Simulated scan of single mutants.
Amino acid sequence: MGNADTSATAAAHMRTLREISGPLARKGDTSPSRAKPAHAPAPIDLGLLDHLEASRAEIVAAVRDANPAAGPAPLDEGIYQWMVDATPQLDEDRRRVHEALAYRQGLEHALRAGEEKVIRRHACPACRTWGLFWSRPAQRAACVNRYCSDAAGRRSTWTLSQLAHHHIATQAERRRTAT
């Protein structure tokens, strides 16, 4: 377990997202009373394209911050392996930050592809029960344990970044204590 596994998972989710994003069917009103558009729709979901570009830019910025001499970044899911290969000199803390970045992006890619079950594979960071689910309106993971709540009595919720950092820290702790 480690940076290579996290990067491979993020790359696999990005690959899946790219594969399902091909020419997407347009959702919306298809009633015959509507006027026909003057031009053809975009061959890919532009929101998805923006998401993939933002993800790539975030990885490139993190790598360039750690290693300004890193070679050119790939344009596909190979960017996660490039991040690992271009930053072998990182200390343990910075390496974990990079792992959490890749892990969070993997979660984001999976959620955009409709795979909300990736959230259920995480224990709640507060109560450690396996009761997390993805709340689309809040854009956060929420715990279903009724005893897991904040001081105001609201259910505990977690951002993808918080889940990623907790997951990576838990993995690091397991590696450290394994003998």
Rank of each mutant, 00 (worst) to 15 (best):
I168V: 15
H109E: 08
L101V: 08
P125G: 10
A102M: 09
A4H: 06
A169D: 15
S149H: 15
A8I: 05
A110N: 04
Q139C: 12
G153Y: 09
R64C: 01
R96V: 04
A8C: 04
P74G: 01
A11P: 00
P88G: 04
R146H: 09
E173V: 04
R136I: 12
R112E: 06
S149Q: 15
Q171F: 01
K27M: 12
Y103P: 08
P41Y: 11
R104V: 10
R120T: 10
L132N: 00
A151T: 06
S55H: 08
V63Y: 02
L75S: 10
R175Y: 07
A113W: 06
E173R: 13
I168R: 03
P32M: 06
R155V: 05
G2A: 11
L24V: 15
Q105W: 09
G22H: 12
A73T: 03
D150C: 03
H13K: 13
M83T: 02
R18E: 13
Q105L: 15
P74I: 02
C124S: 00
P32Q: 03
L52M: 13
H109K: 09
L101Y: 06
A54Y: 06
T170D: 07
P41W: 11
T30L: 14
Q81L: 04
S156R: 14
R56M: 01
A102S: 05
V63G: 00
H165N: 07
E173L: 13
R18D: 08
A8T: 09
R146L: 11
I20K: 10
A40I: 04
R18T: 09
K27L: 15
C124N: 00
W82A: 05
V84Q: 04
P23S: 10
A12F: 01
S149V: 14
D85A: 11
V118I: 14
A8W: 07
L160Y: 01
H39M: 13
H39R: 14
H109R: 11
T6M: 10
M14F: 10
V84D: 04
A141Q: 02
W82R: 07
E77F: 01
P43H: 01
L49T: 11
R136G: 10
E53Q: 15
L75P: 00
P72G: 12
A164H: 00
A142N: 03
R140F: 12
A126C: 10
D50T: 15
R15P: 01
E115C: 01
A86F: 05
R146Y: 06
S21W: 04
H98T: 02
T159E: 03
H39I: 13
I20P: 00
H122M: 07
D93N: 04
S161F: 09
P41K: 08
M83Y: 01
L111S: 03
L132D: 00
R26W: 08
T6S: 11
L49Y: 06
E58I: 04
